[in-house]
Design a protein around this nucleic acid. Structure first.
Length: 332
DNA sequence: AAAGATCCCAACCGCCTAAAC
DNA sequence: CGTTTAGGCGGTTGGGATCTT
């Protein structure tokens, strides 16, 4: 079976259209309509295949085509529709008067897709790019390890152990409370797409069940953390600057569990950025992160995720921020 | 100013689907 | 009911335009 190619006839012209060909095609369609595209070239006197004529007409010559830059409203429409429809360019084009599917597809591939990627958003899922989130974890954790190392010089090991044990216990309570506190809108991190899952199951904070397996795979593939690996560069700074290069991301995220921390004053030198909040938010939602054992000492006051990756950084960062702590339920 | 790199978009290619035969 | 065909769609590409070094 199989169908013969549209342009099987040899000798038919390919490539860019000349203005003369455009004129012939336009005049013919204006007089007669396009009718059968296959028959059109011969009737109009063009040495092209019908498919080529159809594409030229629908993508370029049609009189109702809007030319020029996409407006912000059009961009938003494309982004919103793409989040719902995916690469259904013709369906998206149906909502944009005068724009062709080809034009929208091109604009997506050359502008919008890149912008989303630069903002840390997966252009396919329209969610924060989980791979990036977890690949930055080692740096994040190394930063906290550095902080702890510096702090450890200020008191004895025993005092540290006792202090950290108390802190860790409190943090575990906080985080367990957090993990088991139902939040009405926590199932989505995107304000654009309605999450297909209507609500988070009680006691299960996997915001997207489909992502769990993949997330755990990624977690288990993370390299072991090397102390002081991140050097002098602020992880938060680099994340923020990366995100700030795109404007779209700002409108895309909501943090149902987290406050806006960017402008808050914090005792922590590197104030958690919106991006780090995003990381924690997603991590809490997607990893099924649970403490594996009660803390015993300074070296074990870490929450563990299956392969032993430390998650203490998240609790450190969040709990040192007053505006975050104020959100948490008071422990007895 | 020139060469190389990157961007952009019109056009092509191949697959799918529904209608016609 | 199976086969063929036209139209439509999404992915990809070629080459001109623009930018960078």
């Amino acid at each position: 079976m199989g169908r013969s190619p549209c342009c099987e006839e040899t000798g038919l012209k390919k490539g860019p259209w000349t203005s003369e060909e455009d004129e012939i095609l336009t005049n013919y369609i204006k007089r007669n309509g396009h009718g059968s595209w296959r028959a059109l070239p011969k009737l109009a006197g063009l040495n092209r295949c019908g498919k080529s004529c159809r594409l030229r007409w629908t993508n370029y010559l049609r009189p109702d085509i809007k030319r020029g830059k996409f407006s912000p409203e059009e961009e938003n429409t494309i982004l919103n529709l793409h989040a719902v429809l995916g690469n259904k360019w013709s369906a998206i084009a149906g909502h944009l008067q005068g724009r062709t599917d080809n034009e929208i597809k091109n604009y997506w591939n050359t502008h919008l897709k890149k912008r989303l990627i630069n903002s840390g958003i997966d252009p396919v899922t329209h969610r924060p790019r989980t791979v990036d989130i977890f690949s930055s974890l080692p740096h994040l954790l190394a930063l906290v390890n550095l902080k702890e190392l510096l702090m450890d010089h200020q008191s004895s090991i025993e005092e540290q152990a006792l202090r950290l044990q108390a802190e860790a216990t409190a943090k575990l309570h906080y985080l367990q409370n957090l993990l088991h506190t139902p939040t009405p809108s926590a199932a989505t991190t995107s304000s654009v797409v309605n999450d297909p899952s209507p609500s988070m199951p009680s006691g299960n904070n996997h915001g997207n069940g489909l992502m769990d397996i993949e997330t755990l795979k990624m977690l288990s593939s993370l390299p072991q953390i090397e102390p002081l690996a991140c050097g002098s560069q602020s992880v938060f700074g680099s994340l923020s600057s990366a995100s700030n290069s795109g404007q779209v991301g700002e409108d895309f995220f909501s943090f149902p569990r987290l406050p806006e921390l960017r402008n808050s004053s914090s005792s922590f030198q590197a104030t958690p950025s919106r991006e780090s909040c995003m990381m924690v938010e997603d991590s809490l939602n997607f990893t099924g992160w649970q403490p594996t054992q009660p803390p015993k000492s300074s070296s074990s006051h870490q929450l563990l995720v299956d392969d032993g990756v430390s998650c203490s950084a998240w609790s450190e960062i969040l709990l040192e921020d007053p505006s975050f702590s104020s959100l948490l339920p008071q422990i007895p």
